[in-house]
């Protein structure tokens, strides 16, 4: 457009056009600057601290931020006042819904009213069974303070869990401190834990030993080429690594090895020629006898 300017024939027109172009450029520049700063600001202030959990059915965080229009209808429909909208200055992306499990956990309503209320689908409407929700994953973070780890029977997180015996089980382990008791270790299973946060809320300690973390913090991820040999074997119905032939052990005469069974076996009747008896004491005594 600029090169079309007629230099002298119509000075007022070209001057006004120049003024117009200049002011448009100024406006566009200003707007671009403002856009840039808003963009930067929003990049900076997108945040979801580990203790803040999204409502059930929330899309993956990146998609959620584009889908949620910050209307608060999910907040309003939660009968337990679990959810709130982040205010400016709070550490969660402004205007988006979240909850802090230690304050008010999700009660896992059967009809999932928060998801139903969401007009945009930022809370995915295909979530129909609350047991399929994955708001996060409980992790028993502090073994040094968890009472059960010390051998006491607190069990509160286990008992309070809506998916008791599925999401949290108590695994028995020998108590080496007393030497005669068992530890009942609360153990979370990610295939059932919804991340509702009731265990974190319930933990009797001053600061919860068990906490719900966002999945990306709580879960490890295998290298994509990794395969668990035993699972692959089960799937295939045979070993995939080496052929399932009987393993040959080069053992002294009179001994054999029972693979995946008893282990090393001494054929007792042939013990005469063998260097070692199956009874270590016997072997030792034999050594004594032979001494000069």
């Amino acid at each position: 457009m600029i090169q079309q300017q007629s230099p002298s024939s119509q000075p007022p027109a070209s001057a006004s056009r120049r003024r117009f172009l200049l002011s448009s450029a100024r406006t566009a520049g200003g707007a671009a600057l403002m856009g840039l700063s808003i963009g930067l600001y929003s990049r900076q202030s997108i945040s979801l601290p580990a203790e803040a959990l999204r409502p059930p059915g929330a899309l993956a965080e990146k998609d959620f931020l584009g889908a949620c229009i910050r209307c608060g209808l999910c907040v309003r429909n939660c009968p337990f006042d679990t959810l709130s909208l982040a205010e400016l200055g709070e550490p969660v992306t402004t205007g988006t819904p979240y909850f802090i499990a230690r304050d008010v956990p999700c009660e896992m309503c059967d009809d999932i009213p928060c998801v139903k209320a969401c007009p945009t689908g930022a809370l995915n409407h295909s979530l129909e069974n609350i047991d399929d929700a994955r708001m996060g994953l409980a992790v028993l973070l502090d073994e040094e303070t968890c009472l059960n780890f010390q051998g006491l029977r607190c069990d509160v997180c286990y008992r309070i869990c809506p998916a008791i015996e599925k999401a949290i089980t108590l695994e028995h382990v020998a108590n080496v401190r007393t030497g005669k008791h068992a530890l009942f270790i609360p153990t979370v299973h990610s295939d059932h834990c919804t991340g509702c946060g009731k265990c974190e809320r319930g933990c009797v300690l001053e600061e919860a030993a068990i906490k719900v973390l966002p999945l990306n913090l709580a879960k490890g991820e295998l290298g994509h080429h990794y395969r668990w040999g035993w699972k692959e074997k089960e799937k295939a119905g045979r070993s995939l690594v080496s052929p399932d032939i009987k393993h040959e052990y080069n053992l002294p005469e009179g001994q054999h090895y029972d693979y995946e069974g008893e282990g090393l076996i001494f054929d007792d009747n042939t013990s005469n020629g063998a260097p070692f008896s199956s009874d270590p004491l016997k072997t030792l005594n034999q050594g004594m006898k032979e001494a000069p």
Binding site: S42, L85, E87, L88
Partner: peptide, 30 residues
Amino acid sequence: LAFTTGNVAWEMVNPVSMMHRGLIFGIGMA
């Protein structure tokens, strides 16, 4: 901005929604 960031970025500063949401849900520093 929405297109490039994949986030409804403007709604993080928009004075209109800030004020209305603030008066109903808590205003914070808005």
